[in-house]
Design a protein around this nucleic acid. Sequence first.
DNA 1: TAACTAATGTAACATATGTTACAGAAGCAC
DNA 2: GTGCTTCTGTAACATATGTTACATTAGTTA
Lengths: 219, 219
Amino acid sequence: MVCELFDSITEEEQKKMLTCAAAKERSFAAGEYIFRQGDSPKSMYLVLKGSVMVAKDFVTGKRSVLFIVYEKDVFGEMFAFSNESQFWYDAIANEPVTVLEIPFGFFFGFCENACRKHQTIVKNMLGIFSKKSFMMTKKLYLLSGKTLRERISMWVLDLAGEKDSFKSDMNREELSDYLGTTRPSLSRELMAMQDEGLIEVERSSFKIKDREGLEYYAE
Amino acid sequence: MVCELFDSITEEEQKKMLTCAAAKERSFAAGEYIFRQGDSPKSMYLVLKGSVMVAKDFVTGKRSVLFIVYEKDVFGEMFAFSNESQFWYDAIANEPVTVLEIPFGFFFGFCENACRKHQTIVKNMLGIFSKKSFMMTKKLYLLSGKTLRERISMWVLDLAGEKDSFKSDMNREELSDYLGTTRPSLSRELMAMQDEGLIEVERSSFKIKDREGLEYYAE
DNA sequence: TAACTAATGTAACATATGTTACAGAAGCAC
DNA sequence: GTGCTTCTGTAACATATGTTACATTAGTTA
């Protein structure tokens, strides 16, 4: 298993540590709850196979999806290191899923046996948090833009970096969602920006034609 | 100094650790850069006095503020635990400010002298990340709402929790900003929701009148 | 090639929301 | 109390954007 949590840790060491921490592999059928709002957090989870939906359910039956967690990614990690006494969201198997349930003690009980690698784990955990913080900061920054053009401009400038062109790995549907809008609105605005000579767009290829102009809008 | 980073660590121990890690207190005049986009990250920072603006500057001279960091809070922490080779934002003194510059080694060099408390520091650091993740997740969730009413509904439900009324510590201006809108738009919508019997608003006091209705809109 | 599907662009319309400017209410100093 | 400032609600208007439905293009399979 190659995942950030066990980076720099051999498979053998991994096994020892997990045994020592009483981590368990568990499987869930599609739709089953892995944990629920209000449960008291005792473990965090690593997705081994499948995907998990992290969401909030309302009494009316509505469900709001916060995010989807895929293989090799963790969830519930926020609760491992805070003092929250309850989960405030649900984790639901999105499909048949296998997860590794890792009791929080794993991170704090520096046992004296063969588990000298705990420090590495903790370091990896900090790395995971860092990456997530990056992603979230960027997205929050993006969504702080009030107009769609502003958000598009910020997004384009961020992805392009020093370069003047790039390819996106999102299609229009995904991009519109990421930018907090709808596909037709996004298309319309992209074309308008092209007509005005700010950018050139061709499917997933983007080219900056007027950097200053974009920076003007990316206020 | 009472801050989360040094939670459970006596002042004496703190001093030892900081000396051993070569942490330095530094002061900056208002407007001075603490670090700049492109600098290579070597330390993280704790605000001792004043406040710091974390922002992105554009060549056009425009500046976008990502967030403001106040006393006892840290910044630059994301770069301590990732492999990014450059800061991608600037940190600028918002006013005359004193910060503690903590070299990254602080977290990894478990020196053998008097610094047994490093583990605690790392744990505290994880707690800081957790809290930030909570805040950011909530805000991202909120901003995922496409209509203003949706966002207001989510916000009200979240703050109220089990209860039916609460007081906000934000004024209309701040709240509108938090919800990604403008003050008049917020006022208009709040009043509309009051007229429709969803909530009751009186300055910073909010009361839920129709929970199901709110949940309906908080899709 | 043709036929089909998925992705993307377009257009018309309704509406939510930003903008601007002002009015009323609350809080505070005197 | 008066006068002042700050916060909040209101109204009119312009506009950005969601909605819906359809057209066009690219990609894929036979």
